[in-house]
């Protein structure tokens, strides 16, 4: 069933997904690698991936870093601001599973748990690594777009 189902995002969005980047209390490393994807060597804009300035224009939310207590509500509000169908790409070990900050007192949880508090069926893909290389981030985005 899963193999024959149509991809989750409509064709128009798959061709040119616009992304909004949210750094939730990470260490900057993943944010820099995300910015690296936009610069000449990797240049994802040639595939139609564009970083936009407002969540209301975005199809995919890029989240990096563990979600701190102070960032929990802003992240959820940003997610709810995005139009459906929407998907999230969690970049880096911290966003996926809190990484090294698992035992810290100031974190609210990994980003998938925080997003599913407001939308239990949220569409989420994971890119592990500390930080993941730009190639990995691009591969993760492609998997997210092609997945049913």
């Amino acid at each position: 069933m899963a193999e024959t189902a149509a991809p989750f995002l409509p064709r128009a969005l798959r061709g040119s997904p616009w992304v909004f980047h949210v750094g939730t209390s990470g260490c900057n490393n993943c944010d820099i690698e995300i910015a690296d994807c936009l610069t000449p060597r990797f240049d994802v804009e040639r595939f139609g991936v564009r970083l936009v300035g407002s969540p209301r224009h975005a199809d995919v939310l890029l989240v990096s870093g563990p979600v701190s207590l102070a960032c929990r509500r802003p992240l959820q509000e940003t997610w709810l601001d995005m139009p459906s169908p929407r998907a999230a790409l969690l970049v880096g070990a911290c966003a996926c599973s809190m990484g090294g900050y698992r035992d810290a007192y100031g974190v609210a949880g990994p980003a998938d748990r925080v997003l599913r508090e407001v939308e239990p069926g949220a569409r989420i893909a994971y890119v592990p690594g500390c930080p993941p290389k730009p190639e990995t981030i691009i591969a993760g985005l492609v998997r997210l777009l092609e997945a049913p």
């Binding site: 209390s25 990470g26 870093g65 563990p66 701190s68 207590l69 102070a70 960032c71 802003p74 090294g100 900050y101 035992d103 810290a104 007192y105 100031g106 974190v107």
Partner: peptide
Amino acid sequence: YIHKGLERL
């Protein structure tokens, strides 16, 4: 916003 408690960790 970024305070995680790293020194304590």
